[in-house]
Design a binder for these strands. Structure first.
Lengths: 136, 136
DNA sequence: ATGCCTGCAAAATATTTGCATGTAA
DNA sequence: TTACATGCAAATATTTTGCAGGCAT
C-alpha cells in the first residue's frame, strides 16, 4: 500500500475546501505522507520545527481543528488534559497507556459493541468512542 | 432502595481514610445522599454555594480528586475540556450529549464489548470507557 | 498539641481569539 | 486586488499548587 505523496497534498486540501497555504501543506505533509498516527498539537508543533517549518503553536491548533472539521482527522479524547488527533479515519478504537501518554489503535472489527440500548428521544448516534485503559 | 443518609457520611469518609472535615462532609452529602449523578467541579461548587456552604473551588477540585483516588467516585472523560465525576461505581458506560454537556448512564450489562484483542506486552486492562456520542 | 485540611491567590496547562500583517488566487 | 490565513500575544478555561492559618483527633 502506497502512502500519500507530497504532491497530492494540494488536491487533498482543495477537496476539503482549504487553501493550500505553506503551513497547511507542511503540517499535512507530516500527518498524511506516511503511516497512520496519533499526535497532539504540541508534538506536531515540535516536529514541524524539527523539519525547519516555523509555524506558531496557535496555527498548529487552528489547523488541527480545521482538519478535524473537514474530516481529515479525528479527535480522540483519552486523557481529559490533552487532545489527540488521529489520522486513521476508519471505524476503530484505542488502547491508552496513560503512563506513556500513548494511544494505540485497535483495528476496526476487532472490538465490537453489542446491545446498544434505546437512545433518548430525538437523538441519534454521532460516534462511539471506546478507550481501553492500560496499566503495567 | 434507600439512599445514604447524612449521618452515614462520617463512616463513609473514615473507611476511605479521609478525615470527616466540614467541607468533605458537605460535598459528600451533596454527592452521595441521593440518586447517582454526574458532576463537574464547577457545578458542585455552585451547588454547595446554593446550599450555604462556602467552599473554595480549589477545595472542591481537591476533594473530587481525593474521592476519586479512594474509589468513592469515578472520573469520566467525555469532553476533553471538562472532567466529569460519576457517583455510580458499577461497571457501566455513557451517552454523551455534547450540545447539552450532559452524561447519561447506560446501565451495566446493556452494552457489551466483544473481541478484545491481545494487549501489548506486559500490560493489563485498567478499565474500559465507552462513550456513545449523541447528536440531535 | 499535632498533623492533616482549607482558603486564597497565584501558577500551570491547554487551547482559543483579536488584530495587524502576509499571501494565495 | 481581495479575501482568507498566519503570527503573536493576550485572553480564556480548567485544574493544580504553595503557604499561612484552621480544625479534627
Amino acid at each position: 500500500m502506497e502512502y500519500l505523496s507530497k504532491d497530492e497534498i494540494p488536491a487533498l486540501l482543495r477537496e476539503a475546501e482549504l487553501r493550500p497555504t505553506r503551513q497547511r501543506m507542511a503540517l499535512a505533509g507530516l500527518l498524511f505522507c506516511g503511516p497512520h498516527r496519533h499526535v497532539t498539537a504540541e508534538e506536531l508543533h515540535r516536529e514541524a520545527a524539527d523539519h525547519g517549518h516555523s509555524i506558531s503553536l496557535a496555527t498548529v491548533y487552528n489547523t488541527l481543528n480545521q482538519f478535524s472539521e473537514v474530516g481529515l482527522l479525528r479527535e480522540v479524547v483519552a486523557d481529559g488534559s490533552r487532545t489527540f488527533y488521529d489520522t486513521n479515519l476508519s471505524d476503530h478504537h484505542h488502547f491508552y497507556a496513560a503512563k506513556r501518554g500513548k494511544l494505540i489503535d485497535i483495528p476496526a472489527g476487532d472490538l465490537r459493541i453489542e446491545g446498544m440500548p434505546a437512545l433518548p428521544e430525538g437523538m441519534k448516534v454521532a460516534g462511539i468512542d471506546v478507550i481501553v485503559r492500560l496499566e503495567e
